[in-house]
């Protein structure tokens, strides 16, 4: 069984590097803001006993008040998982640091989110549309984009 990492373990490994006000827990997920995202990923990727070496998926959700980017990590070595959420309250110019330098698997998924949600990933090596063509009007997966247009 792939188990969810418990709060104690996460707290234990994060407390030296990240201040405890920068992240919180919501049911099974860790919620943070874009400023501490990369730091948290770096720590969790290498912390002994945690070693989240596999980024399973990155996706985004358009909530009325904010964009939420959801990361799902596994550790292949220890067979546990972690869901990490980053909220981005600025709906006009959403941006979030890219974790592609850490996890190559994030590359296309971040481009996909950029394409379909319009969230910019700062310092992504090649932030261009992936599915739609350059100059396509709008970002279809946003809620204000009609379904049948």
């Amino acid at each position: 069984m792939t188990i969810k990492l418990s709060r104690e373990i996460i707290n234990h490994s994060l407390h030296e590097h990240v201040s405890s006000t920068d992240y919180s827990f919501e049911s099974e997920a860790v919620v943070t803001d874009s400023a501490s995202l990369v730091k948290i990923c770096e720590v969790l990727k290498s912390a002994p006993g945690i070693e989240l070496d596999y980024l399973s998926s990155v996706t985004a959700v358009d909530y009325p008040d904010y964009f939420e980017v959801v990361y799902l990590f596994y550790s292949i070595k220890h067979n546990h998982s972690l869901t990490l959420k980053v909220r981005c309250p600025d709906k006009q110019q959403p941006d979030i640091p890219s974790i592609t330098p850490l996890y190559n698997g994030a590359n296309y998924q971040e481009r996909e989110i950029y394409d379909l949600f319009g969230i910019s990933f700062v310092s992504h090596p090649k932030l261009r549309r992936i599915f739609l063509w350059e100059g396509y009007p709008g970002h279809p997966l946003r809620k204000d984009y009609g379904i049948g247009s």
Binding site: N104, N107, P125, K126, R128, W133, E134, G135, Y136
Partner: peptide
């Protein structure tokens, strides 16, 4: 990981 090449003119033409 090497940075992917990028061809803005070709993309623009395609669009």
């Amino acid at each position: 990981v090497r940075i992917e090449p990028c061809y803005p003119e070709i993309d623009a033409h395609e669009s």
